[in-house]
Design a protein around this nucleic acid. Sequence first.
DNA 1: CTGGATGAG
DNA 2: CATTCTCATCCAG
Length: 408
Amino acid sequence: MGTKAFNSKVLKEESRPSIVQRMENQERQKKFEQKQKEVEKEIRQEQREALKQGIRPKFVTNKEKSLRMAEDEWALIPDQHQRTIVHIDVDCFYAQVEMVRDPSLRDKPLGIKQKNLMVTSNYVARSMGVKKSMWIKDAVKILPNLVFVDGSDLTHYRQFSTEISAVAQSFTPNVERLGLDENYVDITDIVGDYISPEYSAIEGHVFGDKEEDRKVLGDPCGCGCLQRLTAGSHLAKKIRQQILETTGITCCAGVAHNKLLAKLVSGYYKPNQQTVVFPWQAHDVMESLKQARSIPGIGSTTFKILEDLNISTVQELQNASLSTLHTRFDEETSKRLKDLSYGIDEGLVRKSGKPQSIGLEDAFKKTSKQKSWDLTSQTHQPAKGRLKQKVKERKPQRLKPKALLNLM
DNA sequence: CTGGATGAG
DNA sequence: CATTCTCATCCAG
C-alpha cells in the first residue's frame, strides 16, 4: 500500500534514484532472492529427510516461508521511503490555550489542574523546576506562587484543537488527529511543490543535529527521500507558522517517511521547534530509546509480555528471533514488533472523523442506513441520548476504504 | 454487531 | 496518590 502512495506529481518532480542507489537496490533485491532460494532449499532438504525417515513431509505454507526468511535477515526486507509525514505536537497544550485566552498569564508560572493533579504546566513554570505533571501539593511545594487554572472543562481545548487541525487540513485533507494536541499530516501529495532550489536547505533541526547530517553532499538513499524530507521540513515550518498566526499556539513538528519516526523525533527539540529525520538515521533514533516500552504501539501489556521473554530494550527486541516472539504473539504482531524496533512503520495516516466534541449540547445528525456520515441529513438526535449511542453513531465502525474517501 | 483488550493522550 | 477518563482500533464470539 505504501509503495503506491506517491502521486504522479511527486513522481515527476522528485529526483530519480541515482545510479548508485539503483545498484544498491538491485544488490538488496538479489540478496533477498538469494535468501528466498536458500529457505526453499532448506525446506526441500527437510522434506527429503522426512521422507527418508518414512515420515510424511509437512506442508510448508507461504506464510511460514516468509517468516523463516525474515528470521535472520530482517534488514533485507525492503523499506520504502515514498511518503512524507509530519507529526505536529502542540507545546503544553492546555497551558497555551489558557495563555492565549488570558495573555496576562504568559509570563507567570502556570499550572492547569484537574482534581488534585496538575496535568500540565507552561514553560515558565517548568523553568522553575515544576514538572510536566505533578500532584498539586508537590507543585505548590516547589513553587508557592504557581498560578492555577482549572482545566476540567475541555470545551475551549476542543475548539483550539479543531482549529489547529483545520489549519493542517487547509494544506491537505490527509490529517489524522491523535488526542487533542497531536496531528499526523501526510504531505506526500503536496511535498513536490516544495522541492526546489529555493528550499534546498533543511528547515529546523536534523535529528542528531550534527553538521554532517545537514550537508547535502552524498545522498545515502537516492530514492528521492532526501529531497522530499527537506521540502517537508519547509512545509512543516509553514504549517506551524500558519497555526501560530491563526490560533496563537506554538507547536513542534517531526518530519519523516513514516508515522513512527515522525512522532519519535517531533519532541526532540522543544518547545516551538522542529526536527527532520532521514531513513538512514532510523537506527540511531531507535537506539536513542532505551526501553522498548517507549516505542509508540508498545503499551504496558505488550511490554509485560516482552519482559517475560527477557526482552526490554529496543536492541533486545531487534535481536529477538521471530520464533521467540511467536511463542507469545501471533505472527502479524511478532513482525510488527520487529518492524517497530527497526523504525519501520507502514501505518497510514488516516483521515480523522468529524470535528470532535462530545459536549452535552451537541446534537447529532446521522443517516439512518448509510454507512457514511452525511451532515446534510435531517435526522436530528438530541445529545441527551446515551453516550454509548452517540459513540456508536459517530463511528460507523470499520469503514470500507471507499466510504473513507467520502469522509471529508 | 458487539464487548473486551489494547494503547494513546 | 502515576489517577481517571475519553477515544480509536482490532478481533473473537
